[in-house]
């Protein structure tokens, strides 16, 4: 299975699908806490990204990032 590159567009597409939010609202500066989701949705989002982009993010790392741009950098940096 080929692993896609974790561009911001690719990440945002996944988040939009998992969290059911309009793709156009997802920009690098958007705070994860602004996505208006409950904690289980965030678990689903985090694991979906790791499964898709074949990376590992720990609970501690996930808790330390604030924006979608930071999330994308973390995922890309792990590839």
């Amino acid at each position: 299975m080929s692993v896609p590159t974790a561009t911001f567009d690719a990440i945002a597409e996944h988040i939009a699908q998992v969290l059911q939010v309009p793709r156009e609202l997802l920009k690098p500066e958007v705070l994860i806490s602004e996505l208006g989701t409950d904690s289980l949705d965030l678990v689903e989002m985090a694991i979906d990204l790791q499964e898709e982009f074949d990376v590992v993010i720990t609970q501690e790392e996930f808790a330390s990032i604030r924006t979608l741009g930071e999330l994308q950098s973390l995922v890309l940096g792990r590839q």
């Binding site: 904690s39 289980l40 965030l42 678990v43 985090a46 694991i47 790791q50 499964e51 590992v56 993010i57 720990t58 609970q59 790392e61 996930f62 808790a63």
Partner: peptide, 14 residues
């Protein structure tokens, strides 16, 4: 659990 442990962030933690 989630209050005490924080939410898991990867499949292994789940």
């Amino acid at each position: 659990y989630f209050t005490a442990l924080g939410v898991p962030a990867n499949l292994m933690e789940v």
